[in-house]
Design a protein around this nucleic acid. Structure first.
Length: 109
DNA sequence: GACATGACGATTT
DNA sequence: GAAATCGCCATGT
């Protein structure tokens, strides 16, 4: 089942520090998928079965909560981000670039 | 087994 | 600068 990019994506998303967010493309690049950012999205969908995978911390390159429609509730993603201390305005992460966490940067700045 | 689609991104026109 | 198109892997039908 695993042995695919999915497994790598899960590992990265699972390592996202609290209060931080990352983008699909960043993960896709980290796993070497390049432009296969879609797979990351699909991986997140599959991650829905893995509560340990904070898919809510993964947004698109614009910081938009594009995947919030796939959560239990449309507000669940935003609510969770707010719990992490992340401000969300109009389905968009505030200071996204500031809260952005690069999967290759396991250290926080 | 093949076709179509999908939570995106980058590049090219 | 904006719009359109390709790329990429997996899942669903």
């Amino acid at each position: 089942m695993n042995d695919s990019l999915f497994d790598l994506i899960f590992d990265i998303v699972r390592h996202i520090p609290g209060g931080r967010v990352t983008s699909y493309g960043a993960i896709a690049r980290c796993i070497g998928a390049g432009g296969s950012a879609r797979i990351v999205g699909w991986a997140m969908h599959a991650a829905g079965a893995y509560p340990q995978i904070p898919a809510h911390r993964v947004v698109n390159s614009k910081g938009l909560l594009t995947g919030k429609h796939h959560f239990a509730t449309l507000t669940l993603m935003q609510e969770r981000l707010e719990q992490e201390g992340i401000e969300v305005k109009e389905d968009q992460v505030v200071d996204f670039k500031q809260l952005f966490w690069d999967p290759a940067t396991l250290s926080d700045m």
